[in-house]
């Protein structure tokens, strides 16, 4: 291939070309290029929210689709999410300042006894990539920690992850406690992890089982759309 492909000068691209190039650069996990692209668009007086949705979220959607379809795997997605994060560092304060619309807020963590957080981290990153606010509780969460964070953060969604056969039943403990306290219906509960499946998710009372991070994002978007539709008008 020709040398000129190595010498793409982001600042010389038109807005449309730059956005497409940023989708490519996210796909390739190029953090510095994404940071540069975000700054160029902001310099061209783009609203922070437009940079987020058209350049970053749209680019991460392509990554997410290819992850869902078994074309990209965890290493590539981690790199892409890392690049996205680079751009978000600049955007985040500006988004808050400009009062950009919120997609929703998710509390996420692996359940008690489970240290395997690779999947959970991916979901967190992809959710952020889709514009959600993510409160990451890390690993090994007892039921109290989930409930405390949901209420403190006024969250919309609870995401629980378990990778082990020995830890996945704990998700039911959390959901049962939410039912006992009468707060189950206040939140959307999404569960995931390698040993789980859809039927399992239903059996323990989750709203949905999400096969991977891309599916988690799509599912969360769908539930949030429904939730907004149910809000009383005015």
């Amino acid at each position: 291939m020709s040398d000129e492909e190595d010498d793409i000068i982001l600042a010389e691209l038109s807005d449309d070309e730059l956005v497409l190039q940023m989708h490519d650069d996210l796909y390739d996990g190029m953090k510095e290029e994404i940071e540069e692209g975000v700054n160029i668009l902001l310099g061209r007086k783009w609203q922070p929210y437009r940079v987020l949705t058209e350049a970053l979220v749209a680019g991460m959607t392509i990554v997410g689709n290819d992850f869902r379809d078994g074309i990209l795997f965890v290493p590539e997605v981690l790199l892409a999410a890392g690049a996205m994060k680079g751009g978000m560092e600049t955007l985040k304060p500006l988004l808050i300042e400009s009062g950009a619309p919120r997609m929703g807020k998710m509390v996420i963590g692996t359940v008690k006894g489970d240290i395997h957080d690779i999947g959970k981290n991916l979901v967190g990153m992809m959710m952020e990539g889709a514009g959600f606010e993510v409160i990451d509780l890390g690993i090994n969460n007892p039921v109290e920690d989930y409930l405390e964070a949901l209420s403190r953060e006024d969250a919309d969604i609870l995401g629980m992850s378990a990778l082990l056969t020995t830890t996945m039943p704990y998700m039911k403990v959390v959901i049962d406690t939410m039912i006992e306290q009468g707060i189950r219906e206040d939140y959307i509960v999404l569960v995931g992890g390698a040993p789980l499946n859809e039927e399992f998710g239903k059996a323990i009372g989750a709203d949905s089982y999400c096969r991977d991070a891309a599916v988690a994002v799509e599912t969360a978007k769908g539930f949030m759309a429904n939730k907004h539709n149910q809000l009383p008008a005015g």
Partner: peptide, 12 residues
Amino acid sequence: AAPSPRRTRRRK
């Protein structure tokens, strides 16, 4: 038969 990653402009 597996689908391959998309080609991007920087990828050689």
